[in-house]
Amino acid sequence: MSARVGVVVFPGTNCEHDVAGVLASLGGETELVWHGTRSLGGYDALVLPGGFAHGDYLRPGAIARFSPVMDAVADFAAAGGPVVGICNGFQVLTEAGLLPGALQKNRGLRFICTTVGVRVSSALSVITAGVEVGRVLQIPINHFEGNYTCDRSTLAELRDEGRIVLRYVDNPNGSIDDIAGICNREGNVVGLMPHPERAADELTGSTDGIVLLRSLLAAADTAEVALGD
């Protein structure tokens, strides 16, 4: 049976079809999940895709974290279910407290839309479990607030526990320690600024994102998410 992946859609999310399409092409069964949903039973993994949830008003993710679906996302994550936030989804996960730190405006105050090299720095996470550490992937970024920051003790923790998942080869936005993606202690909740779904076809220049999404599907296949409801 193929893994069932819920792709969470907030008002203003705009990458849901890209993610769902690529996951489906890799053999996943995908379903768009509206942010008003309160139950996430039946899914093997969740993706919070990119976009501008709730218009990015106040701060990216600030309003989205109070969307009804977010309590269910937190329960799903606590039950060990794979949860991946891409770009705006990463911002939502930090605002919701499911990942530490925050994403602030890029150094230089520029919106950056380009393909960058990111190095896999840890195999702890559900998106890198199937990828060799040290491998450099060419994946597009597309953000204004991608400059990851956190306090010193959090950074030390992330480093010590192998939770820095992806690092920029050539830091484009000022992120502390070149961080492009991190995960929680268990590795099942991941946030990353690069868009793997946009590096999944030769036509768009790179297929390096596929290994990350394939790894997610593999994690979803073996995930046993027991939700309390």
């Binding site: 106040l58 701060r59 600030a62 309003i63 109070f66 930090t94 605002e95 530490p100 730190g101 925050a102 602030q104 920051t149 956190c150 306090d151």
Partner: peptide
Amino acid sequence: RLLSNPVI
């Protein structure tokens, strides 16, 4: 709770 992010 809403208007600020205490991390930054």
